[in-house]
């Protein structure tokens, strides 16, 4: 369900991959904008207000990546912000999760082949694995901008509260 990277039995016989795949406490989130147009950021602010009130699920915004379990990543990851994203995600304690919000973070949107962007989080993820930064789970939330309900749905998918609806489909015409 959640994409996993790395992990084998350690010296104490604990399956690290299994141990890090789920989070059993309230998740604290850190918001990273990587060159987004602020549409998705406004929707994230909407989620955090009393109107949608994600503190029902124990989700809380924190000001430092060192306190965070989950990074809310928006934007297509421009070349300029890439080093900052690496530093922010590197500062997060394991298990670290990423919620890629909006079309930009998922597939690069209209900037997917631009010279100044990486074109979405999947491409950054490849580079992170080369650089030795392990991310325990990624959930992609499409939408331009993603609705506040879609973001809550994505967080619920990450927490394992429900199974994702979307499936790969192939039709013959």
């Amino acid at each position: 369900m959640v994409q996993l990277l790395g992990g084998e039995l350690n010296s104490k016989g604990i399956d690290l991959r299994k141990a890090l795949s789920r989070i059993k406490r309230s998740i604290w989130v850190y918001h990273i904008n990587t060159g987004s147009c602020n549409g998705c950021d406004i929707e994230i602010l909407d989620v955090l207000t009393p109107y949608f009130d994600v503190e029902r699920f124990g989700i809380k915004l924190v000001a430092s990546p060192r306190h965070a379990d989950l990074a809310l990543l928006t934007g297509p990851i421009t070349i300029k912000t890439f080093s900052k994203v690496y530093r922010a995600l590197n500062a997060m304690p394991r298990p670290r999760f990423v919620l890629a919000i909006g079309s930009c973070a998922v597939g690069g949107n209209i900037w997917f082949e631009s010279y100044s962007t990486l074109g979405g989080f999947p491409k950054a993820l490849e580079m992170f694995s080369e650089m030795g930064l392990e991310i325990d789970g990624v959930v992609y939330v499409p939408g331009c901008p993603a609705r506040p309900e879609a973001i809550i749905y994505g967080a619920a998918t990450l927490l394992g509260l429900q199974k994702p609806k979307t499936r790969y489909r192939r039709f013959k015409a």
Partner: peptide, 14 residues
Amino acid sequence: FELATGNIFDLYAD
């Protein structure tokens, strides 16, 4: 709009 998923290949339709 509830399209969130952990696997990026689930987002394709052919």
